[in-house]
């Protein structure tokens, strides 16, 4: 079992490292050793830095939205007296529903001709063009901003917020009722019980969930590709999308792998820093 895992997890990384040192045209795979040239090229690419920036925006934005909505939902479900099962079924459905179907629904609802959400927004004057395409907002001080990235963040959050919800819900269920009873006897209000019991007990799980969500969202490929293929232009091209586009559209396999390796390093450094700063696994143990 170690073997299989090593085979499929370690081998590709090593392979990617090795491939990233070569120039490999995808159509006729002839490996030409070029040393670090691919990396040099990566860091010179404008679209690399752009993708890095957009990827970070996407990651931070998604994580924040998901944390807020997910936590809110978990607390509400935990407090509900009736209809709990109904709402949690919806939550688990959106966890298990294939991303592609979320995409299909989103494309349909945002369709400029027949989409219900598009028309709703347009009638409020929120946008005119296709939200995942040409629509922009003119923000004072920043200028024209494409709506595509925020839209992708929100659509993604519809599906992925429930990850936080489920995580937090599992944690909430594990807090013994007697803690709340003891606090009630002390005279604590609901808010005080939340602050002094729920939140500290939830903190570890939240940190872990935030770490996982950040990693997942930074790595997110499917929903962005399905919705926009990285477009319009490069407006929604994050790092994984860039790696894919360079590999299969630019037919530069070595370059694509170089981007993948950079991504991996970036994440590894981020994760280590995170673990050092918060030590979430220890929090979870207690």
């Amino acid at each position: 079992m170690l073997f299989l895992y090593t085979l499929i997890a370690i081998l590709p990384v090593g392979f990617a490292l090795w491939a990233s040192l070569h120039r490999i045209p995808l159509t006729q795979p002839q490996w030409t050793f070029v040393g670090l040239e691919n990396y040099a090229q990566v860091f010179e690419l404008d679209r690399f830095w752009g993708s890095m920036w957009r990827g970070t925006l996407f990651m931070v934005g998604s994580t924040l939205v998901q944390l807020a909505v997910g936590l809110w939902m978990a607390l509400v479900i935990n407090r509900m007296e009736r209809g709990q099962r109904l709402l949690s079924t919806l939550v688990f459905t959106s966890y298990l529903i294939p991303t592609i179907i979320v995409t299909l629904i989103a494309l349909f609802m945002l369709d400029p001709f027949v989409g219900v959400l598009h028309q709703f927004g347009a009638s409020l004057g929120l946008w005119e063009g296709y939200v995942l395409g040409a629509a922009t907002w003119n923000l004072p001080g920043i200028g024209e901003v494409s709506l595509a990235l925020p839209a992708v963040v929100l659509i993604g959050s519809w599906k992925f917020s429930v990850f936080i919800t489920i995580f937090a819900l599992a944690q909430l269920r594990s807090i013994p009722n007697r803690f709340y009873e003891a606090a009630k006897i002390c005279g604590a209000t609901s808010w005080e019980m939340f602050r002094d019991i729920t939140l500290p007990r939830l903190k570890g799980a939240i940190l872990v969930a935030v770490l996982l969500r950040s990693v997942f969202m930074f790595n997110k490929y499917d929903i962005i590709w399905q919705l926009t293929q990285g477009g319009p232009g490069y407006e929604t091209t994050t790092m994984p999308i860039l790696a894919y586009r360079e590999t299969f559209e630019g037919s530069a396999y070595g370059l694509g792998n170089a981007i993948a390796v950079v991504m991996f390093c970036f994440l590894a450094v981020g994760a280590v820093a995170y673990f050092v700063a918060f030590n979430p696994s220890q929090e979870v143990d207690t």
């Binding site: 013994p176 007697r178 003891a182 006897i185 005279g187 209000t189 019991i197």
Partner: peptide, 27 residues
């Protein structure tokens, strides 16, 4: 229970694991 001014000692103790003894008592 918040407004009754009672003290209750539980069978399973119910000390908060994330607080020190001092903070538990001062809660």
């Amino acid at each position: 229970p918040q407004e009754r001014d009672v003290a209750l000692l539980f069978q399973d103790i119910a000390l908060y694991p994330h607080m020190s003894v001092r903070d538990n008592m001062a809660y």
